[in-house]
Structure formats: C-alpha cells, structure tokens
C-alpha cells in the first residue's frame, strides 16, 4: 500500500516540477505569431509548389497576413476559392481572377519540323539549349528533353512521344508556373483558360525572318501580319517577325486562325468547323 502512495507522491512531485518548468519556459520564450497565419495556411492547398512566388504555403500565408493585400498575391493552385476563403479570414474583399493554364507555344513536332540532327546526351533542355539550336534547327523551338515535365509537381504535363512536344493536361494544370521557369527557351506561357477552356494563341515564338523560320518548321509564325489586320479587337501585335495574341483582349472570334498562312495560330476546345480544320497536329489530352 505504502509503495503505491510513495510512488504516486514521487511521480506527482516530478510532474509538478516539470509542469512549473514548462510553464515558465513557455512564458519566457513565447513566439508571438498572428493566429491568422495558421488559419490561412490551413485553407491553402499545401502543395508547396512555389507558384505564388513564396517559399511554400507557409511563406505565402505569412505574406497574406502581413500585407493583407490580395492584388499581388494569388495562389494559382487554389485559385479563386482559396482567395475568397483567405479574404474572409482577413476580412477584406477580393476580386476574382480568371483561371489560367500553361500553354506550350511551339508546334514543331517531328512532322512539322523534321529533325536534322539527333541529340544524344544528358536529357536536360537547359544543357541542350547551351549546346545547339535544336534537332529541327529552330533556335526558338522546343528541345524535347522534358525539363518542363520534371519540373511539374502535379503530373500535369507529359511528353508526347509521337510529336516530341510536351502536352499540358488541362484538368491537372494548376498554372503554378514551374514549367514556365523551367523551360530554357521560354516557350511555355500562362494564359487565361478561357470560357469552357476555349483559347486561341500563336503556337510559335520564333523571331527569325519568315523564310528562315519556315525552312525549319512548317507551322512557324512568319510574321506576315495578316492576323493583325484581320483581328477586329486589336488583340494581336506584331514585333520581331512574331505575332502575339493578348489573351485579355481576344474575344475568341477565330478570324485570325483561318487567316494564318502557316497554321501557326491554334484554337483549343472549339467545336470542329464545317470547313477545313488546320490544326490537325494538335494533340490535347
């Protein structure tokens, strides 16, 4: 009997001692942190992809709480929903942003831009870019080593073995922008996803003169400017022999698509037209 009492007493004393120590240590070394940081972090996706420009979701949560300003802060993975929830925690209003998606602006598939050399070596676009212009000879085109694929934390991009080009999986892409940074040639761009995923873009970033570009690739933008003239919304600009469609201004009228002589302008997720469809090379998953 006495053993039980003694042991209880002894353990109780030890427990009390530790509790006191912990209590004081906790008071002394307390880190004061805004409780909203935890709350915000909780609603974030937790992918730690860095797409927001901050080191992980915690860093982003801290930034939100610190600034309280949503105009420059956006979680591309969580999108508007997360922004709204975070705004509720912070007690501010937030404007909705159009969802975006990564777009590969090169259509230099094996068929459109035949290989003139075979690349052997480290499967790294960054290195191949240092080494030479590319298997097709186009110094702007996709190198096909898949740096974008390995950079994607969401498995949203893969190399199509038939074309040698990366393909973005629409449902999985969170527009975090990792592939945009990974591509040494800046081929991938984040563009508005568009209503029902409909979007139109120039699938080429070649700034060479038309004839030179055309030599390497059948679907290169030759900078003829026809699309600029035909566009009723002034959404298309031409510089350095290259047309660019501003996705904020584009109204998806598709006039430029049929005007383009090389088929460099792609339309995605539109119902098929009755007449000719030029973008047969298009592969979407």
């Amino acid at each position: 009997m006495s053993i039980i009492i003694y042991s209880l007493l002894a353990l109780g004393c030890v427990a009390l001692l530790f509790a006191t120590v912990i209590f004081f240590v906790d008071k002394k070394f307390k880190v004061v942190e805004d409780p909203r940081i935890d709350k915000v972090q909780e609603i974030l996706p937790g992918a730690n992809c860095g797409g927001c420009g901050y080191p992980g979701c915690r860093g982003f949560a801290e930034a939100i709480v610190k600034t309280g300003d949503f105009s420059a802060l956006f979680c591309p993975v969580g999108g508007n929903e997360v922004a709204k929830k975070a705004a509720v925690i912070m007690g501010v209003e937030v404007k909705e942003k159009a969802p975006r998606i990564a777009v590969v602006r090169c259509n230099g598939s094996y068929q459109n831009a035949p290989q003139k050399a075979r690349y052997e070596g480290a499967s790294s676009c960054a290195f191949a870019h240092m080494l030479f212009a590319g298997e097709s000879g186009c110094p702007y085109g996709c190198l096909g080593c898949g740096d974008c694929v390995s950079s994607c934390t969401f498995d949203a991009i893969f190399m199509n073995p038939e074309t040698g080009l990366p393909v973005v999986i629409e449902d999985k892409c969170t527009s975090c922008g990792a592939c945009v940074k990974a591509c040494p040639r800046g081929i991938i761009e984040l563009r508005n996803k568009g209503p029902k995923g409909k979007r139109i873009f120039v699938s080429c970033i070649n700034k060479e003169k038309g004839a030179v570009a055309r030599k390497n690739c059948a679907v290169a933008c030759i900078g003829c400017g026809k699309c600029v003239k035909v566009c009723p919304h002034e959404a298309i600009t031409l510089s350095d022999n290259l047309a660019y469609i501003d996705y904020e201004k584009c109204k998806l009228c598709r006039k430029c698509v049929s005007e383009c002589p090389t088929g460099a302008i792609l339309e995605i997720n539109f119902p098929p037209r009755k007449t000719d469809v030029k973008n047969t090379n298009e592969v979407e998953a």
């Binding site: 290989q115 003139k116 050399a117 075979r118 690349y119 052997e120 070596g121 480290a122 290195f127 080494l131 030479f132 298997e135």
Partner: peptide, 9 residues
C-alpha cells in the same frame, strides 16, 4: 539529307 548525332564532348 543525313542527320548527324549531336552531343557534348
């Protein structure tokens, strides 16, 4: 036109 192998040294 023949294609040549390209690689780093």
């Amino acid at each position: 036109m023949s294609t040549y192998i390209l690689s780093g040294s």
